[in-house]
Every structure is written in structure tokens, then in C-alpha cells.
Nucleic acid binder design. Sequence first.
DNA 1: TACTAATCGAGACGGTACGTCGGGTCTTAAT
DNA 2: ATTAAGACCCGACGTACCGTCTCGATTAGTA
Lengths: 210, 210, 210, 210
Amino acid sequence: MATQSSKQPAPDTTRRSERSRRAIYDAALDLVAEVGYPRTTIEGIAARAGVGKQTIYRWWSSKAEVLMEAFLDLSEQAAREAGPEAAYTIPDTGDLAADLKAVLRLTVDQLKDPRFEAPSRALAAEGVVNEQVCRAFVAELLEPSLQLYVDRVRAAQEAGQVRPEIDPRIALELWVSPLAQRWLQHTGPISYDYTDTLVDYALNGIAPRA
Amino acid sequence: MATQSSKQPAPDTTRRSERSRRAIYDAALDLVAEVGYPRTTIEGIAARAGVGKQTIYRWWSSKAEVLMEAFLDLSEQAAREAGPEAAYTIPDTGDLAADLKAVLRLTVDQLKDPRFEAPSRALAAEGVVNEQVCRAFVAELLEPSLQLYVDRVRAAQEAGQVRPEIDPRIALELWVSPLAQRWLQHTGPISYDYTDTLVDYALNGIAPRA
Amino acid sequence: MATQSSKQPAPDTTRRSERSRRAIYDAALDLVAEVGYPRTTIEGIAARAGVGKQTIYRWWSSKAEVLMEAFLDLSEQAAREAGPEAAYTIPDTGDLAADLKAVLRLTVDQLKDPRFEAPSRALAAEGVVNEQVCRAFVAELLEPSLQLYVDRVRAAQEAGQVRPEIDPRIALELWVSPLAQRWLQHTGPISYDYTDTLVDYALNGIAPRA
Amino acid sequence: MATQSSKQPAPDTTRRSERSRRAIYDAALDLVAEVGYPRTTIEGIAARAGVGKQTIYRWWSSKAEVLMEAFLDLSEQAAREAGPEAAYTIPDTGDLAADLKAVLRLTVDQLKDPRFEAPSRALAAEGVVNEQVCRAFVAELLEPSLQLYVDRVRAAQEAGQVRPEIDPRIALELWVSPLAQRWLQHTGPISYDYTDTLVDYALNGIAPRA
DNA sequence: TACTAATCGAGACGGTACGTCGGGTCTTAAT
DNA sequence: ATTAAGACCCGACGTACCGTCTCGATTAGTA
């Protein structure tokens, strides 16, 4: 694990206050939801969490990092609540279109859940402009989800439902990216109809069938 | 659209200093390119432009707004340089795939142009988290470009190269959004090959042709 | 009159707007009375007078100068109202003590007149810290009044009521300065009794009479 | 006198940086001496003291208050230097006139000491126009000095050198106020001769001795 | 069980930038 | 040529947070 970046003599994790960590997560998520990411400050988080500023600086290096961990924690918590077996996979009923539509409908629901909206939006925004945050965001939140699609598409290829020369990593962007862009940049409304349509277009193309 | 919002007694536009405006645009774009958006400050812009802070606050209400106008100005300028007739349209050679690939290759070039990269990334980021900036960004920069695709797809529909029931506004997202997301969130590399592939997948779908 | 201090090509006094001058005087005096000297600004005076800022800067060089002239104008006006003959002299009834007490009682009244209090206090304060204002204040407002005492004391000397070796310019400070200091620095209450006492002490001294 | 006024949550005096306080005092006094009171700014003091602006605003509410404390500190320091026993009293040799003349000569010297001149003049000026500063100035600087005269005059009364019906608080103004006014308003030169004369006039009056 | 060393809440500190106010100069159009 | 109006450059205001730095007062793990 090496010895921290530079200055401090590496804080002792075993003595860390779990109480404070939880309070900081809660405060960060609450504040982002209440006043928005730009108006959320380290001082504000510390005050709301009833914690000294140093306690934050000791364990994180920026408010983005705090929020990232807080959000990850929230996600894990939500996953645990959703039940251990359902632990986020894409179903494989044999019908690719139906499976994708089902999962995207869940995604639509989640994108509209206010508990998730504010922090994930904030992290995405920060990531657009901050290389480091971006890498973490993509690696820890985005890619794991996308990988599920890669797997499902590969299964479909083996079942002959997707042409073998298709690159699954690119294919999944046909439905994931449009939804992401509409959500991130408000370029259009988001609905079940919309995601259903995306799946149809992606699977069949827009050109006339033979 | 006509009267100002509330506070200030509406500055007199006819007396506005063109000199200052240009200097502010230049300073804002330079700073964003040099030190990044978060470290670009109104004070910094004013200082670099040789302008009083008040002159900025008189005409704009945030650094995002300044940058937006500066970037719009830059775009118009670039468009003017590109020649009056070429004024950004999508060619119609009769071959939809070829036309889209050609335009997307130009887009790839532009996304990699450092003059455009920093400011447009900054505006996109701000937009993700700031409703007002987002609307302006989409309305003034994004939608006009997307509309060109809508027109081209409709022409293709009339030529029988796209199924009539396809919604062009959704169709275009099949190639635009994946490119946008890779660029915004660094979720993958961007290349001519990539955009070519997107066009192929979008036109033909990923399912086996009948 | 020479040609102004430095920059401007000496404004043409004949074309000066009397209307503006009066409005500026009124605005300056009103503002000083209402919000105090430090919070009185050139911009405020201009706005309240319905006058351009430049009109003030053309004819005066500081807010202190404006206020000085405004106050002088007010004084002259008040003197004119008080009747032409009474035009401020010290009576000479032959009884020095009585005459001084009478005049000092008028001074007490004037010091408590709110129309005079704010501006003269402001000018005195500015003068303490600003050499130029101080000279003008003393020369145009203070000395003329003090000279009256000099004259009256000299007359008393000729009448044998004041010892011949006494310097009248110093003598008058025995009653003028204590009153001035109590007023300026709030070091004590001001009343007829007080000024009467001052005159008695000054004339007879505090040591036992032989 | 105990609890703070309203807004801030009362900074913790025990944690106060003595280093900063001293640096601020020095910077304030230096600046007032160098550029004058009006051109002395809080920002300037902070910069010269190598201190954040907030550190000034945390402990004082205006530049006048800073200067007041700085000057009080300077005075105490000077008093301490002058020796513990000489700690500013008025001598009592039995000869009132001689004692007063001696003390006033010291006062003349002090009024001409450039270290004291600038700040005390500034405070006096501010006090003329600012009630709050005035009270502090009078209470903490002026009155203590004046009280010494009251005591000395009372002693003289008991010794039969001052008439019993004389009010010492008023009597002292016969020599203190003239000196104060000449100094504050430059209404005349200040010299040993001048103060000697004041004492003579005050003790014996200006009228012929019976 | 007591000792000791790290973490904790708290918040003062040196800074940077904020958004506002006003100073003094300059330009415009209308008397 | 002066005026009302007000944009301009500039400097200071008082505030909000930054990230660093002490302070006792807990609070573990070790002696």
C-alpha cells in the first residue's frame, strides 16, 4: 500500500473513527442534494457532520473524493438492500431485446431517483473537467456496469442473435450513451418508450432490412 | 427576452466598449486553456484582459456565461474563416453512410483541437451541474448541430435509405451520443475507425440481417 | 485667479449652471446630515442633486471642498436672514463679561442647531487629518469669528478692563477652546452655565485674588 | 460589557496569536505614519503585517479600532520605558504654576513626537465624526490624563492656592483645551512660551487684579 | 490497569477569490 | 462649452472557504 503521497506520516487506519466516517458520508450526500455540488463545501460538510475539518483532510484529498466514496457507499448499501442474489446482473432469458429493455427500464428509474441524481450528476460533472476524478468515476462506477452489457452481448453472439464480428464494447454504447447524454445534458426526455426504441434501433439498425 | 431580470438598472448597450469585450473573450479562452476551468477566475480574466472586474459583472453574471459567449464568438469566427458557403452543413452525396462518416471525421478532428477542447469541455461540465448554463449550451451550441443530422436523415428517408417509421432525432443519437460520451467521460478512445464503426452499427444494427 | 491646478483647460465660469451648484450644495448638506460624512459620497451627491459626476469634479476637487463651500453658502445665507445690521459682531456694552457671556450663549445655540452640527463637525474632522482642508476651514470659518473676539478684547484693554500686557489672541482661547473641545470631542456637556463659568474663570483666574 | 454584540460566535481569545497582534499593531502605526490615516487600509495593514484580512476582522471591527488599540499599546509601552515610578503623574512641589508649566512642556514635546503625532491625530479626527470611536478615545486616552489635573488642582485648593469654589474639571480646560485646539486645528503655533502663558492667564485671569 | 500515542472536535491562521461600492477619468448626446 | 448620464479602470471593502496548523479531550492499542 506504500506510504501515502507526501506529507503526513500515514494515518493509522485501525484507529479511525467509524462514527465520523458515516457522519461525513451522510453530510456530504445531504448537502449535495440540498444546495448542489458547487455550494457544498468541506467546511459545510465538517460542520454538518459535527467533525473537525482536519478529520476530512486526513482521509480524503478533495470534496470530490469524499463524495465519490460517499456515493460508492450509498450504492453498495442500496445493492445490499436490493437483495444478495439480484446483485446486479443482466438477465438472460434468451431474448436479447427483452432483456436489454428490462434492464434499461431499471436504469431509467434509478436515474430519476433523487437520492442518486444529485451526487452522481455532481461526480459526472467534476469528472468532465478533472482527469483524476474521471478515472475513478469511470473505473469504480461506470465500467463495472458496462461490463455486464459486454457479457450479455457476448452471450447473444454465441446464441447467434448478434453478428459475430460486432464489438460488444462498442455495441453497448448504442443504447447506453444516448441515455447517458439525455440525462447528463438534458438533450431530451427520458422514458421507457425511449429506451425501448433505442434497443430496437440498435439491434436492427435504421436502414431498411434486406 | 426583452427587459432585464430585476436588480441593475440595465446597462446601456450602445455605450459598450467593443475593445473590452474582445479582450475579455480572449482572456477567458486563454485562461481556460492554460490553467483549466476551475482555476480560471473572474479576477484573473479581468486582470489578463486589462479590464475592471465591474466591467465583467456589468455584462455577465458568472464566469460560465462569459465563457459561453466567448466560445460562441470563437465558433462563429471559426465558421466565418471556414468559408461562407461551407457554413457547416452535412453533405448529401446520396450515400448516407459515407456522408455521416465524413462529417463525424471532421467532428473527431474538432474534438481534438486544443483551441476548442478546453472551453467546450468546461461548458459541458458546468452544464451538467447548472441547469441554466445547460439550457444555453444545448440551445446555442448542441441543438443547431444536431438539427443538421435530423435534416440529413429525413432526406435519406425520402430516398428510401432509412425506414420511414424511424425517428431521426433518436436515430442521430446512435452515433452522436457514443462519441460524445467517450469524449466527455474518457470512456474510450476516439478515432476515425471508431466513428466509422458507429455509423455501420447504427445503419445496419447488430442483429444478423434476415 | 490663475489657471486651475493641472489638467483641465480651466472651465469657463461664466457658463456655469447656477441651478446645478445650488442642487449640489443642498444634496451635500442633506446627505451629511442624513447618513454622516464618511457615508456621503460624490456619487451620492451627484445622484441626489440630479447632476453628472463630472459636473462636481469640474468645479471641486474633493467632497470636503464641496461641503466646505456648501457650508459657507449656508452660513452666509443664515447671516443674511439674521438681518443685515446684526451681521455678526460682538456687542460692546462696556461690560466685557456680560458681552462675552451673551455671545457664547448664541454660539452654544448654534452648536446645537442640527442644520449646522453635521457639516461643521464633518469639516472639523476632515481638517484634523487633512492639512489643506484644515487651512481653508480655519481661514474661512474659524479665524473671522476669532478676530471679533480679538477686537472686543482690545477694546476692553483700552477701557482698562483687561490688563495691557495680555495677548488678546491667546486670551480668547480661554473660553473658545474649552467650548470647542467639549463640542468636538464630547469631553463634557455644553450649557449656558458652562460658558458663563468659563468667562468668569478666564477673566478672574482661578487663584485667590490678592 | 461581557457578551459580544450579535453576529460572530465569539472567537476564542486563548488561542489568539500574539505574533499576529504585534505585527498588526506595528503595521497599522507604520502605515498611518507613512501614508496618513485615510490612505491606510485594512488590506494594507494585513499585507504589511503578513497576516490574513480575516485575522483583523476577527478581532477588530474597523481600522479605527485597530489603530486605537495599537496606539494604546504604544502608549503603555512608552510609559513602561519611561520608568515605573515616573508612571505619569503631575508633580506637586507646592508651586502650582511651576508644576503645570513643567507638565505642559512635556505634553508639547509629546505632541511634536512624530511617533505619536500621526496616530493620535488620526484617532482624534475619526472621533469627531464617529461617536463610538470618540467615546473610546476619550475614556481610554483623554480622561485618564485629565484626571491627573483634577487631582493636582484639588491639592492646590486644599493648599489655598486655588479658590475653593472653582470646579477643577473646568479649570483644567483653561490650559488643556487651548493647547489641544492649536494642535488639532492648527490655529496657532505651539511652544513652551505659549503653554507658560496659558498657565499664567488661567491662574490669574486677564482682568486687572483688584 | 495504567500509559502513551494517534485521532478527534474545534477553530485560528495566511491566503485567494468573491461580488459590491465608490473614486476619478472619459465619452456621448442634448441643450 | 457645459450638462446629465453612465461606462470605464482601479482599489478597497467585508465575507466565504481553502488547506495548514495548533490546541486540549478522548480513545485505542501496548506495557
